[in-house]
Design a protein around this nucleic acid. Structure first.
Lengths: 214, 214
DNA sequence: ACCTGAACACCGTTCAAGT
DNA sequence: ACCTGAACACCGTTCAAGT
């Protein structure tokens, strides 16, 4: 688990001569990478820089991660965990109905807009790791499951048409993911409306598209 | 313009000693970069490699492009041009109605699936160029305009509800872009249905969402 | 004008050596 | 076990020098 509240020290950690780094170096490295990603983007992450931020040599990281892409995949995994928590929180708080579902869609887009670089790493990780990363895959699937479950529940309440839930979920996911990516890439600026406005409009049109036939 | 049919020579072009490269080095560099992108992905593009493919030194490129990101932005621009042509072709061939619109959506997703790395460059270019690239922006806007025009025309035919066309277009774009990105990232594999099946389903649900109130 | 090789400041990764 | 510095093979970019 990562504490988002902790502020990173601007100076490298003091090196007590002749001593090793404290035991929990792995989360410290992950936190440092995440911090750099959020402040300067993925491309600013270097093993040398991460090491220096934590107060450790540039090759120390290889004791805890196979390589740089493994570090970034760990960051991605943490992102899917955060996203999942944000989604369930909204869905349950807003009452597990049409309003809650729309709110969940808004929360998805908001997460991406608030953590653009982190979001990019989450969905860019598929290129990084040629070999399948089971832990990352699982965390991504867990986030997706929140969406599927919400649709199944709405079908049970007769709010959503009885199509294949997986296909419905992929449809919705594509839409919010598309809005998120376009927003992050700055492609929604030239319009007068805000990202939030577009997301709300899109969720409303989608609702009409997936509602039960009256 | 880039001829997609030309096959790149596997060996570096012969260097006739004491002679400069032929006059049209710029398109040759762009073609070489595009070829590497399609075969091995963006990260495989190096200025040294591109130069060698064309039979030129690694710094020759700087005569025709400001830097590496300028080369990639040129690739992105070419991609938007190709995408636009693919979209209008479908829209006009399939009869500028509901069928044509669905077909245009399919063409969009197909383009991305058939040119995954190229598509990624098109939408990753916003990170590359901090300074706004007017030519790239214009080419992207031209592709988007095809979508907006198609919606306006359908509104005139009373096929689509009379919302703000720009917002409708952004909604549709987000959806197909989302499907395209998820497909490219390999996140639609674990499902039984194909990408095409999902795209068709999504376009059908979207049609219901944006249709005029009967 | 257009192209070249040498040089510079980076990067990820490996590895023998230290404690 | 865990960490280190030196070394290796890359990379984009700059620049004086060639034709």
């Amino acid at each position: 688990m990562i504490r988002m509240a902790t502020v990173r020290r601007s100076k490298p950690a003091k090196k007590r001569s002749g001593r090793y780094h404290h035991g929990d170096l792995q989360p410290a490295l992950l936190q440092a990478a995440l911090c750099t990603i959020q402040k300067q983007g993925v491309e600013a992450v270097t093993l040398r820089g991460v090491g220096k931020d934590v107060g450790v040599s540039r090759t120390a990281l290889y004791r805890h991660f196979a390589d740089k892409s493994a570090l970034l995949r760990a960051v991605a995994r943490e992102g899917f965990r955060m996203l999942r928590l944000a989604l369930v929180e909204r869905w349950e708080r807003e009452g597990k109905g049409t309003a809650g579902f729309e709110s969940m869609g808004m929360a998805y887009v908001q997460f991406a807009v608030n953590n653009p670089s982190h979001y990019r790493v989450m969905f860019g990780a598929s290129i990084l790791g040629d070999a399948a990363d089971p832990e990352l895959t699982e965390e991504g699937a867990a986030a997706f499951k929140v969406l599927v479950d919400a649709l199944v529940e709405q079908q049970a309440q007769n709010l959503v048409r009885r199509d294949e839930p997986l296909q419905l979920a992929l449809f919705i996911w594509s839409m919010v993911h598309g809005i998120a990516m376009l927003a992050i890439d700055g492609r929604l600026q030239h319009q007068h409306g805000s990202v939030e406005e577009l997301a709300r409009f899109a969720m409303a049109r989608t609702r009409t598209g997936i509602a039960t036939n009256r």
